[in-house]
């Protein structure tokens, strides 16, 4: 077994899901290499070299890889990855964008969002938005997989692996980068936040979400919403947590004015601790909540803000 882990990064910092993915890789075998592809990303390679128990870091530093264009990066990964038994990437948007392209170039089936490793060829992954868990055995020559980081611990970063530079350059003229707009929020991002506060139809308006933002800032939380709140036009679609929105699994999920439709539960029920605040005590959300508070949210959210 030799495993290639694709680092997720922004050319400046190694993103944490890479550390969780290395833990998954170490469950497959001892020979784990990390590929850092980017531009002027030497700092990322140095951070990756500190990951414990890895064999080496492969650094492909070229302008063609600056924005992680799948057309270029997939060819690099497929070329480098040919000699490995497994190719793993965190199941963020970078990995999801690139890895299927790698798998097709290598003519192998891919596994997405792996949450458990049973053996080097048998894995568990959620299907139907986590309403069922499939155990899948792969006979593919190279196992290409994205890893759901929230299901694996982060590996330690007290190592000192060698960095090897790669010269392979793949550059296409078919796709060019125009711009990137990263939301300038001090709040953490929904899918990686430790605490998520979501509002539902019970919030009654978009303005009332201000209450949740204020509370979120005190808890260093991200703010999400149910599909009902999105459909009602309270908040934009990218805040939606649920089967057709974002899947989250924070340490603490606070559902405010959310009834708990199946479609919403599918996106948050893997959270460690769930709090539900709803004035309807029959709301299905209480069936999955660790702590339920039957109350008017407009009274208790400000109280909560004062107490935390």
């Amino acid at each position: 077994m030799s495993i290639l882990v694709i680092a997720e990064h922004n050319n400046l910092d190694l993103h944490k899901p890479t550390l969780n993915t290395v833990t998954a890789a170490l469950a497959l075998g001892d020979d784990v290499d990390i590929l850092v592809a980017g531009a002027n990303c030497g700092k990322v390679a140095e951070q990756a070299a500190q990951i414990a128990k890895i064999r080496k870091v492969l650094l492909a530093d070229h302008a063609a890889y600056e924005h992680q264009l799948a057309e270029n990066v997939a060819k690099l990964i497929a070329t480098v990855g040919k000699s490995y038994s497994h190719i793993l990437a965190p199941a963020g948007t970078q990995g999801k964008n690139t890895l299927p392209r790698v798998a097709a170039l290598l003519d192998v089936d891919q596994l997405s969002d792996v949450i458990r490793i049973d053996s080097p060829d048998t894995f568990a992954r959620p299907i139907y938005a986590g309403n069922a868990i499939a155990t899948v055995q792969s006979s593919a020559a190279i196992k290409v997989m994205t890893i759901r980081a929230t299901n694996f611990d982060a590996v330690a970063t007290n190592g000192n692996a060698p960095i090897e530079t790669l010269d392979d350059t793949f550059s296409t003229s078919n796709a060019t980068f125009i711009k990137e707009e990263i939301a300038e929020s001090d709040r953490p991002e929904l899918t990686v936040a430790d605490v998520v506060i979501s509002g539902g139809r019970g919030m009654a308006s978009g303005e009332n979400f201000e209450m949740l933002y204020t509370l979120a800032d005190k808890l260093n939380a991200a703010v999400g919403a149910s599909r009902a709140a999105v459909d009602a036009g309270f908040v934009p679609n990218d805040m939606q947590v649920g089967q057709t929105g974002k899947i989250v699994a924070p340490n603490l999920y606070i559902a405010v004015g959310i009834s708990g439709a199946i479609q919403h539960l599918a996106g948050m029920k893997d959270s460690k601790v769930i709090v539900a605040i709803n004035k309807d005590e029959e709301a299905p959300i209480f069936q999955v909540a660790d702590y339920g508070l039957v109350a008017d949210l407009f009274e208790v959210v400000p109280q909560l803000e004062n107490l935390v």
Binding site: N131, I133, T135, Q137, I274, D290, Y291
Partner: peptide, 19 residues
């Protein structure tokens, strides 16, 4: 090349307590 060995329901969440 992917064979589904089994499909299981996810671990059920127990309803907690009301505060």
């Amino acid at each position: 090349t992917l064979k589904t060995v089994k499909v299981e329901p996810p671990a059920e969440r127990q309803a907690g307590i009301k505060v």
